[in-house]
Design a binder for these strands. Structure first.
Lengths: 170, 170
DNA sequence: AGGTGATGTGAATCCCGGTTCACTTCTTGG
DNA sequence: CCAAGAAGTGAACCGGGATTCACATCACCT
């Protein structure tokens, strides 16, 4: 809190005129920033295109934004935080999942995707995206990425699309 | 530490005869327990069967063990922990990923799976499994599961298999 | 101008639980 | 049976950092 106050150019006590506790301050910040990310992804999920195309766009948006702001993405996805912030993170992930669930639902209705639980598939996609990104984002993991960014993105997109699409050989 | 000591029937100081700090004690416990889980999954990954069948077995093993010991699974996968334990968790996830990467690699060589980065796909599978399970495992989330256990398991297995398998319509 | 409430200040407080340590008790090899 | 070291004890210590609060300043209204 000392550092936050100094950074903001105010005294420590001043923070407590606006936020009841460190946890709530951090949760509020998380909420705002996460909201912007959600908005970007929600925008990518819209449009008149097929579910597959929209899913591709969502995944690309998610990945590109994460790679463009790795520290932020790491904070939003994986950094250890207060329980109150962790609760906010859960909401954040659920919101992503809700967007994806709608998308998957559309795909099923268009018969582009086979029957499946939209909620479960959406959750799986969130986990898939988050886990594949946490590696490269992790601040100390400075080892050079195994794949060039473009290939990396396309691989993950392919995984997402396959996961919810029909297989050739059941 | 007080509680751990009381639980173990020893004095607090005694713990420090065996472990240099709380973090290292917890990390050691995590390591041991995680090791058992990894062994179980590694066993499921072996055998003479096709990569797809083995992947199915791995996923089923992972899911069933998690659902059988939800609290433990939650602790291993998602519960907030000391940084040192978090590092152990990273190793744990990487170990799972390594097992799966071998499996995916086999599948590609058998031409059962299309070309893809085994490491990336394996990481994706770990994320997919972890995220779909964290919901039901989360201790406070006592809402009745949307799907019966069997269907839940089969859905997740299907997602895993599809994610690494060929699609009918590219 | 004067009063009143909101806002700012930052050193001091307070709390919490991990860790220590002087002492006791057990174990083991000679 | 006796050192001498290992293991056990638990009350007290201690550090760190979030939070408080008595006081100063500001903004705004009459």
């Amino acid at each position: 809190m000392q550092i936050v106050a100094a950074d903001a150019g105010v005294a420590t006590g001043t923070i407590y005129r606006h936020f009841p506790s460190k946890a709530e301050l951090f949760a509020t910040v998380f909420q705002r920033v996460a909201g912007q990310e959600v908005d970007a992804v929600a925008a990518a999920a819209g449009g008149p295109d097929s579910a597959a195309i929209r899913l591709q766009r969502v995944a690309e948006t998610f990945i590109q934004r994460a790679l463009a702001a790795p520290r932020l993405a790491y904070a939003l996805l994986a950094e250890p935080v207060d329980p109150l912030v962790e609760a906010e993170r859960l909401v954040f992930r659920r919101t992503y999942a809700a967007i994806l669930a709608d998308l998957v639902d559309d795909g099923i209705r268009q018969a582009a995707f086979p029957p499946q639980s939209p909620d479960l598939s959406a959750t799986a996609l969130v986990g898939l995206l988050a886990e594949t990104l946490v590696g490269p984002l992790s601040p100390q993991a400075a080892d050079p990425p195994a794949l060039p960014v473009n290939e990396f993105t396309q691989e993950i997109v392919a995984l997402c699309l396959r996961a919810v699409s029909a297989r050739s050989h059941p």
